[in-house]
């Protein structure tokens, strides 16, 4: 060590309090953040479930088997919890969209409420299309 610079004696770099591993349980907003992040697992579960279903639809005699398996209470509970997490993801995602997107039309900024509303409108249209496609026949 050469001559110690006086000014960096108490440099902020050295002040690093240890953060608890469970820092996110104490406040609701922090817990909500972690729960929102955990929705990722349930989205991956849905993709696996969808792929299993597609495989069953195109396999011989697998379709009935799949629907019997999916009617098991354990699977219904997993899907119910997954739906809650996916809805949490969707709502937080659409609510964030106006903050993340800056759209300009004719040199003027489109108000955030319009962007949020258009996201919810798209959600409704897509959901209705899926429902009509599957229930209409």
């Amino acid at each position: 060590m050469k001559d110690k610079p006086v000014y960096s004696e108490f440099h902020p770099r050295w002040y690093r309090p240890r953060m608890s591993t469970y820092w996110w349980v104490k406040r609701w907003s922090h817990l909500a953040f972690i729960l929102r992040e955990l929705s990722s697992l349930f989205i991956v579960w849905f993709v696996l479930y969808l792929l299993l279903m597609v495989r069953a639809v195109f396999g011989t005699n697998r379709y009935q088997e799949f629907f019997e398996w999916s009617a098991k209470p354990v699977i219904l509970v997993v899907n119910f919890v997954s739906l809650a997490f996916v809805l949490f993801h969707a709502i937080t995602w659409f609510n964030l969209a106006p903050k993340a997107m800056v759209v300009r039309l004719g040199g003027k900024r489109v108000p955030g409420s319009w962007i949020g509303a258009s996201n919810y409108l798209a959600w409704a249209v897509v959901s209705a299309l899926i429902a009509v496609l599957l229930l209409g026949a």
Binding site: F46, M53, L76, V126, A137
Partner: peptide, 30 residues
Amino acid sequence: AALFIPMLLFLFGLAFPSGLLPAPSHQHLL
């Protein structure tokens, strides 16, 4: 995921297996 999964998961994961709504026929899904 936000646009498509809620409805798909509700129908295929809950409504059809539980019998809440009539499941589409195998032929229709094909």
